[in-house]
Every structure is written in C-alpha cells, then in structure tokens.
Design a protein around this nucleic acid. Sequence first.
DNA 1: GCACTCCTGTTATTTTATTGTCAACAATAA
DNA 2: TTATTGTTGACAATAAAATAACAGGAGTGC
Lengths: 236, 236
Amino acid sequence: MDSDRKISPAVINRLPRYYRYLGDLLESDITRISSKELSAKMNITASQIRQDLNNFGGFGQQGYGYNVEYLYNEIKKILGLDRLYNMIVVGGGNLGQALVNYTNFEKRGFVIKAIFDTNPRLIGMTIRGVEVYDTDQMENYVKNNPVDVAILTLPRSQAVKVANNLAKWGVKGMWNFSHVDLQVPDDVLVENVHLTDSLMTLLYKINEMYYSGDEDMHESNLKNGLPVKPLDQDEE
Amino acid sequence: MDSDRKISPAVINRLPRYYRYLGDLLESDITRISSKELSAKMNITASQIRQDLNNFGGFGQQGYGYNVEYLYNEIKKILGLDRLYNMIVVGGGNLGQALVNYTNFEKRGFVIKAIFDTNPRLIGMTIRGVEVYDTDQMENYVKNNPVDVAILTLPRSQAVKVANNLAKWGVKGMWNFSHVDLQVPDDVLVENVHLTDSLMTLLYKINEMYYSGDEDMHESNLKNGLPVKPLDQDEE
DNA sequence: GCACTCCTGTTATTTTATTGTCAACAATAA
DNA sequence: TTATTGTTGACAATAAAATAACAGGAGTGC
C-alpha cells in the first residue's frame, strides 16, 4: 500500500460503492470475480475498476480475477471500517433523530454517543438509548471524550459557529447536513451533504428531459398538471 | 438559453450551490457582484464561475459584474424552481418522516402529496398533514395523479421492484435514499443519495490524515481512544 | 468627452479523469 | 507437458474539467 501517492478524490468517492457491491457478492457466496464481470454489474469500465484498485495495491491475480472476500476486506481496511468511530449528533431535530435511529450505523461501527440540542423539550430524552444533552454541555463533553465525527443537523444560522467550536475542541471530522458550506481549519475534515442541492439537480434533469427547448414552459406545464405559481425566497 | 448544447454534469452539480450563495447575497441586500468577489466567497476560481454561467447565457455585464437578483432568478429558472413539483414518499420510516417534516421543501415548491408504507401501524396516520397510505394503493394513486418525484426511503430489498413499478406508472424522477443503485428505464431520472457512502469517504479522509503511513494502525488507534474490534457484515 | 480601470465572455492551455491496449503471467484444457 | 484462454497491471491515448489568458465593451472619475 503506497501511502505516499495522493489518491484522487474521484477514486475515493467510488470506494464505498465497490465496498457495497463486494458485500453483495459475498452474501451471494460468490468467491471470485473479474474486473469484466464487476464492470457489467456496476456500469463502470473494467479498466477503471482495475486502475482504481491498483491505486491501493495489486489485489487481483492474472487468469483468476479478484477474490471477493479478500478484496472486500482490503477495501474495508482502506476505508478504515475495521475500527469503531465515536460520533455525536448536534441538532436533535427530525433528521438528527432519523440518523440516530438508523440501526445499521451501529452495526458498521459508527457509534453515536450523545445528542446535543438547545430545545428544552428534547433535553433529557433518550433516543434509541442515546441521551439528548443541552448544547451548553457540549464543550465539556467533547474535551473529555474522544469524538471522531460530529454530525451536524442544525439550522444554518448556528452551524458555522458550532462547527468552529467543535473544530477547536478537537473533533476530527464533520458530517454536515446544514445548509451552509463550513469554513473550518484545514486539519478538520468536512463532508457536506446538501440534500436540497441533490434534489435540485434531479429537478434540473427532469426539466431538461420533459420541458427542454420549450422557452415558455407554462403551457406544457399545465398539460402535465403542474400549476404555475411564483415562489419566493425562504430561510433555513 | 442554448438548449441544444449538452451541459456537463459537473456544472449542473454546481448550480444549486450558486443558487444558494446568490440567495444569501440577496438577503444581505447586495445588488451586484463580480465573478472575482463570488470566487472569494465560494472558493471556486472566477474563471470557472464565468464559464459555468456562460453555459446558460451571458448574464453579466463587462465593467459591472452580475446583478444578484437577476442572476438568482435566472438560475432559479434554469433549475426549474419557478414551478411546483408533486412528490410522494415511499417508505414512511424515520428518514421518510424527517423529509416530510422538513418545512422548507414546501416553501421551495416541493409538495409532498402522499406517503406510502406497508406498516399497518403507520397507515392512516398523518404527518404534517400528509396521509400515509398502504403501498397497495400506490399504483392507483400514481396512475391518477401527476407525480414528478418519488422519494424512496425504503429497504434495499424492496427498492428495486418498487422503483421499476413507479417508472412504469409514469413517475418522472426518483430521489433514492435506499442502499442500492437503481436500474430503471432511460427516461426515468434517478438521483442517488447514498448517505453511508458519504460518511465512509469522510472516514477515509480522517484515517488518511490521522493514521496515514501507519501500517499497523492498531496502536495509534488505541492512543486515540478508539477500541479495535472486528466488525462483520450487515444487511440493510 | 476622454482616459483609465474593471470585468465579462471566449478561446487557449493545463490538469485531471477515463478509456483502450497490450505484454506478462496464471489457470485450465488438451 | 504444452497450447489456449482469461485476466491483471502498466501505460498510452482520449476525453472532460478546471484554470489561465486576453480582447474588448461598459462603467467611472476627471
């Protein structure tokens, strides 16, 4: 494993997908697979699969292909999934609770240790065995307990300040669901999940496919049962 | 708006982000902005901003820059956000409920009309005024009501079948949160949100930064308070 | 109104990512 | 054994994306 070379982000983003497919194969008791076969399943070129994997080492064997279980475990190691991670949820709203309730996280080694919120009605409650604390206690908690990842599901107005504090107090990474791009020190890693952005790109594609070249789209719009109404700006 | 030319996916994915920043500027009563200024705010090169925007038309003016409100509204139109969209949620679990409860969707014109689930305890319930129906009724509903987007928050085992049916019945696009890559006809658009994948890439980066070059990572692991425990495969 | 600066739209260049090709070698069959 | 097939890993070729360069129109100050 050549840890000097810088792996391109495009490759890293594909790794979890390989991991998922290999897990599926493992469950189906398939013991070996060639890049060609995997290519057909995943809709990626075989060439790219081989090149992606070779960034981390030669896991395959000529004339044989890849051993599914071995490759699966190697990718698991590469992604760091052979360890436990301590996480906290900041913002105990709907999304925060949904993530806490997602049982598979625990199975994968993502352990949510605490939830922080400012809402008095939530504080003291327990969600799937995880207690909700007042945000006031967060500094104390983070400074005295190892926190690998903070899951941010709070309103954008508070997100920046909270993220900066968490960074200062030693949280390694942030999984950010709030509607704002965080600016934190370079040694704190941020992964943004902008759900609305993702939905918007879907809508763009729908529009492109169903209404493209239609300069005044209102008519076709009505035909499709979509009433036209001006919408104004909203605040998260 | 040159609707012939094919816009690259990279550009489309950036559009919502531009839209977000322009909305912020609008709220701050900033009326004009140059690509250079926006570049500083967004951490993108000015060159890329100009090139991105020019895919859709010349919205700026030499010596002046871009009019914030005008550009905001143009991007709104490009993304198709000047219309209403009818949506349904398939899978009324935690995540599905969280999305229904996300009030901003409605403000943006994303109207969730119905929720479908197989769980008898949920059927008949109302979440933020949206009723939960038995999945049996979905075919009838979709065939008789325009559905632009189906939000899929169901277990992977059911996702593929449901998605194929929805495609057949005329749903235009799917916003897929289930842990599987959907294979649907070409005229049905799918936007996948693989939350776990996104978390895994964050973990990769955390590992790279904190444990890189450390072939036997177990020791440094313990130093950081992360107990090492072998984890096995799980099923969604 | 004129000189000067700003800033776009566009073209050129560089960088990054993907795909295609092939020699080398393993597995399998003859 | 020996031939044949399958398949990797390396690298070359191509494509896509990002960045830089720049000509020239529009604003600004005098």
